[in-house]
Design a binder for these strands. Structure first.
Lengths: 121, 121
DNA sequence: GCTTTATTTAACCATACAGTTAATTAACTA
DNA sequence: TAGTTAATTAACTGTATGGTTAAATAAAGC
């Protein structure tokens, strides 16, 4: 069982699933709604599987209404990714102001030990 | 061949590789430097492979200095991820100010067609 | 030239992942 | 109750991924 962040990143590592998220950012949608753009290329079970991956990664939640399973975006997982990204902001932003602020908070709290192993596997 | 963004996300979907990036955010490091925290658990060829994944995803670049291969973070790929994330900022931020601004730019340029298919596969 | 250090390649293995078709379940509709 | 719609499960297939050990390459150092 991989950690949640790995699960989330790997869910995002597929254009079909990213397109589904994009669709959901325009509002709730059922499984078949989500699958519509891909039905020429992909079977319905394949669609269900993709949705399940998004769900397991915490990126969406699924409810039940009659036969439908309306899905919507779940902010939690996206926030985790955003938080992780934040520590690298310095690398893609020209201004280093945020880095200064960040380094101040980090060097203040962390005991500055050697090579760290964040593994959970 | 998957698109670059998919390649990047899938490179980030592994705690070993994220730890390597974290190490690199503290400065350049050779392959064996990068592998040091994992050597109890993982062989050197495994390390090389992980580095290769990061490289292929555009997250790092590798140079050559004598026998060493000093690696450093490449901002490009991180920026692509950050840019992609930006469109979902509304979901994890309590303030919706940025959403307003974003929606203004998007609804202005996009012709507002039906279900879109961003696929490249 | 031989040895050591740093990294890579080759060959292999097990498991995970993305897709398929066929069958099944669940809830509504006539 | 029979039929339709929405989604899922089962069983299977091919390919990608993450690891291994053993062998090869490349640059330095003696």
């Amino acid at each position: 069982m991989p950690d949640t962040l790995s699960l989330t990143f790997s869910a995002l590592a597929d254009p079909t699933r990213r397109a589904m998220l994009a669709r959901l950012s325009r509002g709730e949608a059922s499984i078949s709604d989500l699958g519509k753009p891909f039905r020429k290329r992909m079977s319905l079970p394949a669609i269900t599987k993709h949705v399940k991956v998004l769900e397991r990664a915490g990126l969406i939640t699924k409810a039940r209404r009659a036969q439908q399973r309306p899905c919507k975006i779940n902010p939690e997982a996206l926030k985790d990714v955003a938080d992780w990204m934040e520590q690298y902001r310095q690398y893609w932003e020209e201004s280093f102001d945020r880095l200064d602020a960040y380094l101040k908070t980090v060097t203040a709290t962390e005991p500055k030990k050697g090579d760290t192993d964040e593994q959970s596997k």
